[in-house]
Amino acid sequence: MLHTVNKSPFERNTLETCLQHAKDGSTILLIEDGVYAATEGTRFSDTIKKAMETKTVCALLPDLKARGMHEKVIEGIKLVDYAGFVDLVEQNERVQAWL
């Protein structure tokens, strides 16, 4: 299953709720302001790294670049473009958008 998160973890609890409800083996795609969670050295970096032990974490590269965050991405996060986003939707049987 694919989960999308589009909120900064500093502003809302969207990422936290997503992680509570995402099963092992699922994929989490960070988009829009959600990509701030993909960066190194934040209060949430360890949360993401822990999630990566059991889940696949991806981030939308165009959103990272737009925010000047593409050089700070946590190692191991898979970066995708919009075509890659489409592929993730195709590969997963259902999508939940955590808004």
């Binding site: 939707v89 195709e90 259902r94 958008a97 808004l99």
Partner: peptide, 8 residues
């Protein structure tokens, strides 16, 4: 096959 939601 899939419904994708975009919102705030």
């Amino acid at each position: 096959d899939r419904l994708v939601v975009f919102g705030d």
